[in-house]
Computed example of a mutant assay.
Amino acid sequence: MTKFRPCIDLHQGKVKQIVGGTLRDDGPGPKENFVASAGAGEFAEMFRRDGLTGGHVIKLGPGNEEAAKEALGVWSGGLQIGGGIHAGNAAEWLAAGASHVIVTSWLFEGAAFSEKRVLELVDAIGADRLIIDLSCRRTAKGWTVAMDRWQTLTDLDVTPATLDRLAPWCDEFLIHAADVEGLCGGIDGELVQMLGAWAGRPITYAGGAASMADVEKVQELSGGKVDVTVGSALDIFGGKGVRYDELVAWNQR
Rank of each mutant, 00 (worst) to 15 (best):
G186A: 02
M1T: 14
A199Q: 07
S232K: 14
G84F: 05
I175C: 00
E246Y: 10
P160D: 01
K240I: 13
G54A: 01
L156N: 07
A38E: 05
Q17G: 09
P30F: 06
R24E: 11
T162V: 10
V215M: 13
A209H: 06
K69D: 00
P62W: 07
H11V: 10
N89I: 00
Q80E: 02
K69R: 10
K59S: 03
L79G: 00
I58Q: 00
A44Q: 02
E65R: 06
H100F: 13
N89K: 09
A199D: 00
W75V: 02
L79C: 03
F4I: 04
G224W: 11
I18A: 15
I85H: 08
R49D: 01
N33T: 15
W198M: 03
G207T: 07
S211F: 12
E92N: 07
M212N: 08
E216A: 13
A206V: 08
R48D: 00
L174M: 10
L163S: 05
V230Q: 07
A161H: 14
A67S: 07
M46D: 04
A209T: 12
A67Q: 00
G97Q: 06
W75T: 05
Q193K: 15
T162C: 09
D227L: 07
C136P: 14
G239W: 05
N33Y: 03
Q151D: 15
R129K: 15
E66W: 05
D235Y: 11
W143S: 10
G27C: 07
G207E: 04
L166F: 13
A111W: 15
G97H: 03
D50V: 01
A91D: 09
V215K: 14
E66D: 08
N89L: 01
K116C: 14
L191M: 10
A90R: 03
V218N: 01
D227S: 09
R201F: 06
C170G: 05
S232W: 07
D25I: 13
D227Q: 02
A161N: 11
E70A: 03
A38Y: 10
G54F: 02
R5L: 08
L156A: 04
K225Y: 12
A36F: 08
F34K: 05
F43D: 01
E32W: 14
